[in-house]
Design a binder for these strands. Structure first.
Length: 273
DNA sequence: TACCAGGACGTGC
DNA sequence: GCACGTCATGGT
């Protein structure tokens, strides 16, 4: 199925390259994106983006296409922080994705003390090893493994994928989710959700915030990693040392647009804006 | 060689 | 509760 969208507030590269998603790649005429067991292609045209997918409803929600970003950018720009003003104006097309919850849990388990190219590579290896083989328009690809597929992976398998010492995190957390599911997490408040996510092996405060933001669409979450800590010191003149407290500072400042601001700042800092 | 990357865990206090 | 050492792996 094929649809066109106005690209004023939808920039493919900004949306895919800002660190919220690990399964996509560039093609000759655009990008291919994977999410859970779904696939889509994005092609940039004049003032529009063409989306070709196996499930248009899924990707309408995935790319958050029902949301008006103009007021978010307006609010973000109102703060007197040069980096944020620049980033929010320049990255008007950066959209926060609504991603698969379990895919986010397993993906961000791998992210800790790691870099984005390696995270992508490890996830790709895991999909190839455990995911269902699918086909879309003559392209073969592997879905992200479901939890019942993840538990088929031994610790040695995850290590062979490049996960390093995070192999046991993937093993133990997938078994825990197989046992109890994640349905009960939905109804929790954002602070309760964070605490619940942190009970998984390998999930600390920062990873919990990422899962909360990207998987559960909790836009009042503010993940603090090494880059955001750098932003905090250099662009906000902050002096706190504890990352949990830095996250609270940002949450108290940006409230319900925390997640958007966090992405503008993270991407802006990495692009040396 | 040492340091860094979307940090978290275990131990000791 | 907090500080500190340690944990694979590949790139610079």
């Amino acid at each position: 199925m094929k649809f066109d969208f106005d690209s004023q507030y939808f920039n493919i590269e900004q949306t895919l390259d800002c660190g919220q998603i690990f399964r996509f790649f560039k093609t000759d005429d655009g990008f291919t994106v994977y999410s859970a067991g779904h696939i889509c292609r994005l092609i940039e045209g004049k003032g529009k983006i063409t989306l070709i997918s196996d499930d248009s409803d899924y990707f309408f929600n995935f790319f958050d296409l029902g949301r008006d970003y103009a007021p978010i950018i307006e609010q973000a720009t109102a703060f007197d922080i040069p980096l944020l003003k620049k980033a929010a104006q320049q990255y008007k097309g950066l959209r926060l994705l609504n991603q698969d919850k379990e895919e986010m849990i397993y993906s961000f388990l791998i992210s800790q003390n790691n870099n984005i190219p390696r995270i992508k590579s490890i996830i790709s290896n895991i999909c190839r090893g455990l995911g269902t083989k699918c086909r879309f328009e003559n392209e073969e690809y592997f879905a992200f493994p479901t939890t019942s597929q993840m538990v088929a992976g031994e610790i040695s398998f995850f290590k062979s994928c490049g996960a390093g010492y995070r192999d046991s995190y993937l093993f133990e957390t997938s078994h825990e989710i197989l046992k109890n599911g994640i349905a009960h997490l939905q109804k929790l408040s954002t602070p309760e959700l964070k605490k619940a996510l942190m009970s998984y092996k390998g999930v600390g405060g920062k990873v919990a915030d990422c899962i909360s933001l990207f998987g559960f669409s909790r836009h009042d979450s503010f993940p603090v990693d090494t880059w955001i800590e750098k932003v905090y010191r250099e662009d906000f003149g902050g002096t706190l040392e504890n990352r949990e407290k830095i996250s609270e500072f940002f949450q108290n400042t940006f409230k319900d647009i925390s997640g958007y601001v966090q992405q503008y700042l993270f991407y802006g800092k990495r692009q040396e804006l």
